[in-house]
Amino acid sequence: MPLYKHIQNNSDSDLYIWKITESVGELLQMVNLCDNDFKRFDKFGSESRKKEFLTTRILIQQCLGSHIQICNNQHGKPYLINSNLNLSITHTKSYVAILLSGKHTPALDMEYLSKRVHRIASRFLSKHELENISQTDKTLHLYQHWCAKECLIKLYGKKDVHLIDELKIHTFQPNDKYFTGEVCRSDFAKKYRFEYLRFDEYLLVYAVN
């Protein structure tokens, strides 16, 4: 299907969400891939991963032009070739989303809301964070924390960060419009504000700071 949703967060950032209903063959006809993209595409074993890879590039090229390409730095962080815009990417099941910003570093994460998060909560939340999880809307609240911490990793830009000790989410209620969190490392310390979007059975959390 075409673009599922477009949100202009402010004058500097744009959020795009695509629901994947196309086949791999249909997606290939819609995208301009460079040689490096084709090499990466051929390495993916699963059809779903191939669709996510292609759809991300389709979104970028429909928004910015067919000459725009996506690369990754040594830490896996994506960036754009032939564009000065900053980029963040997320995908889960049948959805792909990108967040673009000209002046700021964007980050977003999207997850399918399932009960599995209850089993792993202690792996990514501190004791204090666990104590403040809502019991009436527990699944949503846990995923808000999970997605926000994934965003903090992307904002920090490296993956060697401790989820509990170095990524903090400040106390909030699941129906709050905004909430905040921070990276707490000796080499990097910064606070961020998060917004979120819930649709179908999915949650998307994003930050533009």
Rank of each mutant, 00 (worst) to 15 (best):
N82W: 07
I70K: 11
E52N: 10
T56E: 00
F41Q: 10
V31C: 00
I81K: 07
V24W: 00
S23M: 09
Y79A: 01
D42K: 11
N72Q: 08
L33N: 09
F41N: 11
I58E: 05
D37G: 00
N72F: 02
I58H: 05
N73G: 11
F53Q: 12
Q74D: 08
G45W: 10
N84I: 10
T55D: 05
E47S: 10
N32G: 02
K39M: 14
I60D: 01
D37M: 08
V31Y: 14
G45F: 15
C63I: 15
N72T: 12
K19D: 03
T56I: 09
V31A: 01
V24H: 02
F38D: 11
M30T: 13
L80G: 00
G76T: 03
L64F: 06
I20S: 00
P78H: 08
Y79I: 05
D42R: 15
L27K: 08
K77L: 05
T21C: 01
Q29S: 13
K51Q: 01
H75S: 11
I20P: 03
L64V: 01
G45N: 13
K19I: 01
L59W: 13
S66T: 04
N36T: 15
D35F: 10
H75N: 15
Q74A: 14
G76N: 05
C63P: 12
I60Y: 06
I58W: 09
M30F: 14
C34Y: 03
K51D: 05
C34I: 05
N36K: 14
G76V: 06
S83I: 09
T21I: 07
I20L: 00
L28C: 07
N84T: 14
Q69W: 02
N32T: 08
K50Y: 01
V24S: 02
E22G: 04
N84M: 08
H67W: 04
T21D: 00
E22L: 06
L33S: 04
H67D: 11
N36H: 05
Q74L: 08
L28M: 12
N32W: 09
Q61D: 04
E26H: 00
F41R: 10
I20R: 01
N84C: 13
R49E: 07
E26C: 00
L27S: 02
F41K: 11
K43T: 08
